[in-house]
Amino acid sequence: MFPAPFEYVSAHSLDEALEVLESRAGEAKVLAGGQSLIPMMRFRLAQPQVLVDINPIKLLEDLHEQDDALHIGALARHATLEFSPLIQQRYPLIADVSRVVADPTVRNLGTLVGSLCHADPAGDFGSAALAAGAEVIITSSRQHRSLPVDAFFLDTFSTALEEDEIVTEVRWPKPKPRSAGAYLKIERKVGDFAIVGTAVQMALDEGGRIAEAGIGLCAVGPISLRAKQAERLLVGQSPSAELFQEVARQAARESDPTSDTRGSKEYKQDMVRVLTLRALQRAYQRIQAA
């Protein structure tokens, strides 16, 4: 299956890319890892007239900690995250996702930023970014701006990005003391999108109570969801089996899945409960182990 014809631009600098996006607004699309866009083009579900390939812009491969955030450049591949010692040691939530997103070969090209821009509610990184409270850094020839990821997802396959904008990086909060995260996904096989995925990030205060909590849900709504009420139940409490169970039930109530070939609404809702419970337990164990 072959894409419809298009024009191709190999952008060697951000300015070059932005220039094309501005002059061909509405017709041009950014090509990052291509692991979502090219399959869509092969099925002719996407037929952009111009592809702006940002892969030659080495600057965007950036992955480093600075100030209070981890900077994840637009070309940081899933596999780079998967094998990064920094991620493995300090960002268990990202590490978890990077082992279950797509398959190992697709991970060599696919990017976290591309994944967020694609805004597939079944994208694993969307829910993780929500749980972690990540920030999206956006630029165009007109302006620079940043958005909390909560404000970034608008609808299925739709984001707050304007047609001439590029996401240059995502800033992921640095781990606080006594914090950890976890991501759990059930999928039918490797390379499948989630039946359900749950991301949890939490930090304890010095007294052992939960100071901050984030819960993101994957594939159970029109966009990646945050289980806000469930999060609220956690904050200020001491971790306990009963608390986690209650929170898991609440997360399930906040999910809004639809029935499809991956499973019925009921099943998915119950899986939100099961996975949230397990992810909370795992994150808490990780805090204790550290």
């Binding site: 398959d103 096989k189 390379g191 070939t261």
Partner: peptide, 24 residues
């Protein structure tokens, strides 16, 4: 190979007709 009641084929490629990998 599942069909919905309108006769739509719901396993039209390897993302829906599942072939196990070495992992499964």
């Amino acid at each position: 190979i599942v069909y919905d009641e309108d006769g739509n084929h719901l396993a039209t490629n390897f993302s829906d007709y599942l072939v196990p990998t070495a992992w499964e």
